[in-house]
């Protein structure tokens, strides 16, 4: 009897339902995550476009009469101790904070994925070495170390901050990725790939990694918010982005000296950071639900 393709009944839908299509479909049902996504897009757009439409320059000093002005029509969020427009600085600072947040997450992920993937896939001795190294990195008390470092190396550019956050931030990702690889490498499709003769590297990058994206993306989303806070903390320790380049972190740090007389200086970067971080967390939660393999049919 010939097996005829036409006899296999049509059951498939017209649309190619990729995994990401299904994730998107489920994410759209998560109201808080969708609201967060809209808020984040607005914030990002504002940070990109804002500085261009603002009549002020970022570091344009105002006249002495314009120092520490409360919010007004001319300066919707007031001015700082040097008479600079806070709204403009907020947009620009957002660029820096978001840039630091995103790029530090991406760099930490790169390191974390490489370490975690090889440790989890090969296991054994390599795993022991890599994971002990991870443990050592974890046990370094970062904040005290940075306080000491900040007195030695004064001031740092944006990219140095990114580097510092990445160096001390990849370990969690490495552990997540290792965990995923440990369980996914037992899957039959990995065995099937080996039976075909697929190389270990191709198995790692083409077969296992795409299947461990879900927790990585959730962790990255939460990580962006976390790293924005991290940058603020570093700024507070004097190790963050150095003025006159604004970031939400150093705006907040600056504001503390004038808090009593000019509370708007605290409110605007504080709220911006609060809303952004909250939105990233809700989005991360929504993504986790949308990508949960247990819900995945």
């Amino acid at each position: 009897m010939a097996v005829e393709a036409t006899k296999i009944e049509e059951v498939l839908t017209g649309r190619v339902e990729t995994y990401w299509y299904l994730v998107g479909k489920r994410l759209r049902k998560h109201r808080l995550a969708m609201l967060s996504l809209v808020v984040l897009i607005l914030i990002i757009l504002a940070c990109i476009v804002g500085p261009y439409i603002s009549p002020y320059k970022v570091s344009e000093l105002g006249s002495t009469t314009e120092v520490l002005q409360p919010p007004s029509w001319k300066h919707p969020l007031g001015t700082d101790e040097l008479g600079r427009d806070v709204l403009t600085r907020l947009f620009y600072g957002g660029r820096i904070s978001l840039l630091v947040g995103f790029s530090s997450v991406v760099s930490a992920l790169l390191v974390g994925i490489i370490v975690g993937a090889y440790a989890g896939y090969f296991g054994g001795f390599l795993d022991t070495i890599l994971m002990r190294f991870t443990d050592i990195m974890f046990s370094i008390p970062v904040m005290p170390l940075l306080i000491v470092l900040s007195s030695v190396i004064p001031g740092a550019g944006v990219w140095k901050i990114v580097l510092v956050i990445a160096i001390f931030g990849w370990m969690t990702d490495a552990r997540i990725v290792r965990g995923m690889f440990l369980s996914l490498r037992e899957n039959e499709y990995v065995e099937a790939a080996r039976a075909i003769g697929v190389s270990n590297n191709r198995i790692i990058w083409r077969h296992i990694l795409p299947n461990s994206f879900a927790p990585i993306i959730v962790s990255a989303t939460l990580g962006v918010g976390g790293n924005i806070i991290y940058e603020a903390a570093l700024s507070y320790l004097g190790f963050g982005v150095m003025p006159p380049t604004p970031s939400w972190g150093n705006m907040l740090q600056n504001a503390q000296y004038a808090m009593a007389i000019a509370p708007w200086l605290v409110w605007s970067p504080g709220l911006a950071m609060f809303i952004t971080v909250l939105a990233f967390n809700y989005l991360g939660d929504g993504l986790r639900d949308a990508m949960d393999p247990k819900l995945y049919r």
């Binding site: 039959e188 099937a192 075909i196 003769g197």
Partner: peptide, 24 residues
């Protein structure tokens, strides 16, 4: 050295769900 011989011997798995990479 085994790779060229793998062309000659293949396997069909029990679990039609677990043996196919869901992202391919």
């Amino acid at each position: 050295q085994l790779r060229p011989i793998r062309r000659e011997m293949q396997i069909i798995f029990q679990d039609p769900y677990g043996s196919l990479n869901p992202r391919m």
